[in-house]
Design a protein around this nucleic acid. Structure first.
Lengths: 349, 349
DNA sequence: TTGTAAGCGTTATCAT
DNA sequence: ATGATAACGCTTACAA
């Protein structure tokens, strides 16, 4: 039903062979200027476009890169995707986005589908369920260019781009400590994720730096990274109902932070009077939140850009790359000033 | 360098012809049970997967659907995309997402790219710059299945799925009126968009229903739908600094609503004491906002789902579809209770 | 300079 | 029941 203009049509119309037409359309060597012009003009006229599928089949590449993230509906990732696109677009690559919804099975399916559709490379942020990396290792060993960002795989040797999670967590925790809190809980994502580990280390280091003992009971993991509200709720409930409960929480994750805020509010706790919260979030409206949230911002856009640049470099390098680097970008602590948090008039309408 | 397991490899290994292998792999007629089993088991063992590119070339279809939205970093669209995916995934389709960033040129490029890569159908929400629809009309006339959602094209005959923007706008405006406001401004997106027009009509109708005259000066358009902060800022500034300024604003759009809130706060106005705001937003944390925002929620997930179902129906229907329907889903007015907006203690840490 | 033919991976048609 | 062949659209040795 659709767009049957092929190189053959041109050849027939012009009384040439398909190869001559092909040559005219491609680079210009081995062809007479006249023929070339003729073909080019005719192709233009009938609005010919080469069939990229045929090209992919032939060249075994697709000029597209695949992206694997857990969720698009997450400020960090949607910003990262914008960064990815900004680079890919003007380097002539198209971007295929897939979501895992934190499911390992889904990750495997997505990765395999994209690989088999000949994406030229993969940009991956692991799902929180992922422990086994063989589906990725397999492709990596076959030579498919892969760059990890955010949630990276420890034992796959390739480029990686992440925020300085350790330092961000340290800063956030230290911020809480300096504000006078010493009983600081930590609400975080799946313990298998690299970001979870790095942030936990930063948190522990800050506690240690101020001689505050780490307490196991103050640590809560949410496997689904805040996508499931009930999971956050029960974790937060446990934190705030335990004996000798924390008076502050350091939260590691975008959805987790907002989920925590929502829950705390639901339970009638005032922030920061009853409990203070500092969390990783890239929400552009974080400063509008009430209860207030001190947020650790990740350079998501930049991370997406760098990861994409590295991937394209990998794709286009003629020789196998042997040295892989991990780029670590600083986070930013966004502290609200107390003056901004004036009581608001009652909402009467 | 990559995944050279083809039907040929199986044929060679098993001493069969490629056609026999193909038959064994497909449906099962005209083949002996033994051979079939042999092939299937071997294919399984060496982890064979058919090359979708080759299939696409042959079948002239790709089992993928293309999505065109302005931004992924927008609560409405990221939720809609989740709806789209949820249906596409278990109907065996893959989803390719592209963003226009409200640019017409980008829309044209994206649409053409996807069409030429043989997507089986297109799910489109128009960019705010789009006036000329010929790039879409062309494909539509060629027979490419297209379903519009949210920002729809008036003069292209196909399925469309939208929220009841008229009613939503009416409800929001009426809500403000009933709360005692009579000078209600309207901050909205590009006047070319269907949603803009529908919402404007709803707003006007509500004013009329309460005998409030419509004032041209109270209407502000933002071409970029809130993606550019300065644009929102100057529009809001104009609204709140004019003589006889509005005491309430009805805002039409996700980013626009949060942008409006941010700006109003920046200018030191209290909500709703100085100015009340009701706006379309799908933010899952809207209830955390301070200043408070009364929000009109769109069933984004559902809209995505229905649009996808319709598209797949179009794709898979054997006969040309002649009757096209527009589905209109109700919005929901989310009014915060005044009791939830207690003054918060000063943020002292 | 141009044409012929093979091949990318698969399936459908036709023989056998 | 199985194999050979052509075809999907394109590029590229290799011939002419």
């Amino acid at each position: 039903m659709f767009e049957p203009i092929t190189i053959k049509d041109i050849a027939k119309a012009l009384g040439l062979s398909t190869s001559t037409v092909s040559r005219a359309l491609r680079g210009g060597y081995e062809i007479s200027a006249d023929t070339k012009k003729l073909v080019l003009e005719y192709a233009e006229k009938i609005n010919y476009h080469p069939n990229p599928i045929a090209l992919s089949l032939k060249e075994r590449r697709s000029h597209s890169i695949g992206v694997v993230v857990c969720e698009v509906a997450n400020n960090y990732f949607s910003q990262a995707i914008n960064g990815i696109e900004s680079i890919a677009y003007n380097r002539g690559y198209h971007v295929i986005i897939t979501q895992t919804h934190e499911s390992f099975d889904r990750e495997v399916v997505n990765v395999q589908h994209m690989a088999s559709r000949s994406v030229d490379g993969l940009l991956i942020s692991l799902s929180s369920e992922t422990k086994d990396l063989s589906h990725i290792k397999y492709l990596h060993e076959k030579g498919l260019p892969i760059v990890f960002f955010d949630r990276v795989a420890a034992d796959i040797e390739t480029h990686k781009v992440v925020a300085n999670n350790y330092q961000g967590a340290f800063d956030a925790t230290e911020h809480l400590i300096k504000a006078g809190f010493r009983k600081i809980g930590h609400l975080t994502s799946s313990p298998t994720l690299s970001i979870t580990k790095e942030r936990l280390e930063g948190y522990k280091a800050a506690l240690a730096a101020y001689n505050i003992p780490f307490r196991e009971s103050y640590l809560k993991n949410c496997e689904h990274g805040g996508m499931i509200q009930t999971e956050v709720e029960s974790a937060v409930r446990e934190l705030i109902t335990m004996t000798d409960r924390p008076d502050a929480i350091f939260v590691a994750g975008d959805k987790l932070s907002t989920g925590c805020l929502t829950t705390v509010k639901k339970f009638g706790l005032k922030v920061p009077a009853d409990i203070a919260i500092a969390g990783f979030t890239n929400s552009d409206v974080a400063e509008l939140f009430n209860p207030p949230l001190t947020s650790i911002r990740q350079p998501a856009f930049k991370i997406g850009q760098i990861a994409t640049e590295m991937l394209i470099q990998l794709i286009e390098s003629k020789y196998p790359v042997t040295e892989f680097i991990t780029t670590r970008l600083d986070t930013e602590l966004d502290i609200r000033k107390s003056s901004e948090y004036q009581p608001v008039p009652k909402y009467t309408f």
